[in-house]
C-alpha cells in the first residue's frame, strides 16, 4: 500500500528485521541455553556466546540420567521427572493423538449436521459451541478434579483424554462447520438419488471433499492438546501419567535444575509441534481463520 521509494523500502526492511528479531529471540535463547553447561552459564554472566558448547544436557535427558556426561559428573541429584522423559513423551503422544481422533470424529459428525440441517435446536447447539469455546479451563478443573477423584479416574490417561476432548470439541466444530457449509448440497442429493442414505452420502461424498478442513482442524487439535498443561497437571500427579508440559511445569522452582537443562527439555518438547507447523502452515492458517470468523 506504500509507494516504494528507496527510503520507504529501507524502513520496511528495518521493520521486518525488528519483527524477525522479536520472533526469533526466544527460539535462539532456547537453542543457546540448551547447548551450554551450567558452569559456562554461571562463569561469565555477560557473555552472549560462551566458549564451550556441549550436548550433555540432551544426553542426560535421553539416557534417563544414566549417562551423565561431563557437565553432570558431580551432580548427585537429578529430579525423577527428568528421567521420565520417554514416558512423558509417550503419554503426550497418546493423549494428543486420541484427542485429535476423537474431536475430528465427533466434530465432523456434528459440524456437518449443524451446517446442513437447520432446526432451531441445531442453531442453538452451534451457538452453545461458540459460547463453550470461551469457558476457562480453571473453572472446569476444580469440579473435574472432584468428579474424577470420586470415580477413580485421577492418574489415568483416559481421564485426561475425556476432559480434553470435551474441552476442545466446540472449537473443532467451529473450525469444521464453515467448511461443510461451502460444499454444495447438490452432491449429496445426487448421491441419495443413487441410493445412498444420509449417512453414507456424508461418509462417501462429503468427508472426502472435506479432507483439507479435517487436516486443518486435526493439526490444530493436535497442537492444542500437545500444549495443554492445566488439565493433565491437575488430574495426573503420578510421574507415570504425566505429560510433557506437566513434567516441565514440575521443574519450575526446583533449585536443582538450572536453565541449561530446562532449555534442553523445552527444546525436545516443542520440536514436534514446530515441525508440524512448518509442514502444515497452510492448513493451520485456514483453520485458525475459519474457527474465528465464520463460526
Amino acid at each position: 500500500m506504500f509507494k516504494t521509494t528507496p527510503t520507504v523500502k529501507l524502513m520496511l526492511h528495518l521493520a521486518n528485521l525488528m519483527v524477525i528479531f522479536f520472533i526469533l529471540l526466544p527460539v535462539v535463547a532456547v537453542f543457546i541455553g540448551s547447548i551450554q553447561s551450567e558452569k559456562a552459564l554461571q562463569a561469565d554472566t555477560r557473555r552472549l556466546l560462551p566458549l564451550e558448547f556441549t550436548l550433555d544436557n540432551f544426553t542426560v535427558i535421553l539416557t534417563k540420567g544414566e549417562q551423565k556426561g561431563r557437565i553432570f559428573e558431580q551432580v548427585t541429584y537429578l529430579p525423577d521427572n527428568i528421567k521420565n522423559f520417554y514416558v512423558a513423551f509417550a503419554n503426550s503422544t497418546i493423549v494428543a493423538i486420541s484427542v485429535t481422533v476423537l474431536t475430528l470424529l465427533f466434530g465432523s459428525l456434528s459440524a456437518y449436521t449443524l451446517a446442513r440441517l437447520r432446526y432451531r435446536w441445531t442453531l442453538f447447539l452451534l451457538q452453545a459451541n461458540i459460547v463453550a469455546r470461551f469457558v476457562p479451563v480453571i473453572v472446569l478443573m476444580i469440579p473435574l478434579y472432584i468428579v474424577m477423584r470420586s470415580v477413580g479416574q485421577l492418574n489415568s490417561l483416559s481421564g485426561v483424554i475425556i476432559a480434553e476432548t470435551g474441552f476442545l470439541l466446540p472449537y473443532a466444530i467451529l473450525i469444521l462447520a464453515p467448511y461443510f457449509d461451502t460444499i454444495p448440497s447438490e452432491l449429496e442429493e445426487a448421491a441419495r438419488i443413487d441410493g445412498c442414505t444420509r449417512f453414507t452420502a456424508f461418509v462417501r461424498i462429503v468427508l472426502p471433499l472435506a479432507t483439507p478442513a479435517l487436516a486443518a482442524c486435526g493439526v490444530i487439535m493436535f497442537i492444542i492438546s500437545w500444549h495443554e498443561l492445566l488439565i493433565p497437571l491437575i488430574l495426573n500427579a503420578r510421574p507415570n501419567f504425566m505429560t510433557l508440559p506437566v513434567v516441565i511445569a514440575s521443574l519450575v522452582g526446583d533449585v536443582h535444575v538450572f536453565f541449561n537443562l530446562m532449555m534442553a527439555i523445552c527444546l525436545l518438547a516443542l520440536a514436534p509441534t514446530v515441525v508440524l507447523v512448518a509442514l502444515l502452515q497452510k492448513y493451520i492458517v485456514e483453520g485458525l481463520s475459519a474457527g474465528a470468523v465464520k463460526g
Binding site: I223, L229, M262, T273
Partner: peptide, 20 residues
C-alpha cells in the same frame, strides 16, 4: 516465520522467557 510462536507450548514459552 509468523506462525512459529503458535508452535511453542505455553509452559515452554514461559520457561524460555524466564531464562531470557
Amino acid at each position: 516465520l509468523i506462525l512459529l510462536p503458535y508452535a511453542i507450548p505455553p509452559i515452554c514459552n514461559g520457561l524460555i522467557w524466564s531464562f531470557l
